Computed example of a mutant assay.
Amino acid sequence: MADFYELIGVSRSASAEEIKKAYRKRARELHPDANPDNPEAEAQFKEVSRAYQVLADDKQRARYDQFGEAGVGGASGGGGSADDLFGGGLGDIFETFFGGNGSPFGGGGRQRGPAGPPRGQDVEVIADIEFAQAVFGDQIDVEMKLPVRCGTCDGSGAAENTEPVTCSECSGSGQVQRVRQSLLGQMVTASPCTRCGGLGEVIATPCGTCRGEGRVTEDTSYKVDVPGGVDTGSTLRLTRRGAAGPRKGPNGDLYVHLRVAPDERFVRDGDDLITEVPVSIAQAALGTSLTLETLDGAEDLVVPHGTQPGREFVLRQRGVPHLQGRGRGDLIARVRVDVPTKLSDKEVDLLTKLADGRDERVGNGKDGIFSRIKSAFT
């Protein structure tokens, strides 16, 4: 999907009022009333509506600015379609902004037809991935049970050689109008037809497989592209990969929440990776050259003499790829000096001589240095 700011036609520093003003203009241009029989304009209209939904909310806008669409994939909770944003048909957007009958183009607006089959539910799943998959990205299989379109009736809900029939209660409009008296005079209200559920059609002979629902629950698997740089808590949105709607209703969306397995070698700090490099006392004091395992392969690491515990060596561009933007974080190799817990007599003697030569006091009392050190490690 295109950048949300580009869809609306504003810069990333635009104020909330500028975003709202630009959105109204784009919505007028792309509204189906202004573009009859133009499915491309309607698709763009929905994309612009989704973009405005995110950018009009300060919290969602901040997440989008930081993580892109992956950061707001599950934010709307309703899939982000134009119908979801305004609770009804596409014309409701203009009732929200401009009032009136839902059309800014005069002529009293178009008369609403049946609402149509309802949209399927959004579905959320958790996918466990390995550390390297999160860093470099991968294609994974996501499996779940989902309502899918019935293969027997192709989602119509009607038995073989039969078809849905027009609802006699609402005459196919999907709505029932009622007139009632009020202090202001007669008021006409419209509500979904209870007999056909607002679909305008009823199933006289239900399909034996789905019992008129038009969908059945099956084991379903999708291949999901995981971008490099994701982390635990990242959410991927797969448009129209959720539950099928009843009786050929559109699918909901699928939200894949990622859970990354820990790695025994690396700890992640944002887009940087931290790893410990164990060295002995002698190696830290005299210096050494080590082979350091990275996610990109083995690399040589020179530890100079006199290296202190906790010293860090930074390997540029060996960390996690930036989820939004180019480049990668760094790999930080942190030195850990391992002190031996068991010493032979010879090793005790050598360390004692070293301490004497540096005029360093070791041991803690009157029994003699050698015997105290020896007893501590035996």
Rank of each mutant, 00 (worst) to 15 (best):
D300W: 00
D300P: 03
D300C: 00
D300S: 09
L301M: 03
L301N: 12
V303Y: 00
V303R: 01
V303T: 08
V303Q: 05
P304L: 01
P304I: 06
H305A: 14
H305C: 01
G306W: 10
G306Q: 05
T307N: 08
T307W: 05
T307I: 09
Q308V: 11
Q308S: 07
Q308F: 00
P309M: 01
P309C: 03
G310W: 00
G310L: 08
G310A: 12
G310R: 15
R311G: 01
R311P: 00
R311A: 13
F313Q: 09
F313Y: 15
F313A: 12
F313V: 05
V314F: 03
L315T: 07
R316I: 03
Q317Y: 01
R318V: 00
V320Q: 08
V320L: 13
V320K: 13
V320W: 06
P321F: 09
P321R: 07
P321M: 11
H322E: 08
H322S: 06
H322L: 10
L323F: 02
L323C: 12
L323Q: 14
L323T: 10
Q324F: 01
G325S: 08
G325C: 13
R326L: 06
G327W: 08
R328A: 05
G329Q: 09
D330G: 05
D330L: 03
L331R: 02
L331G: 04
L331Q: 06
L331T: 07
L331C: 09
I332A: 03
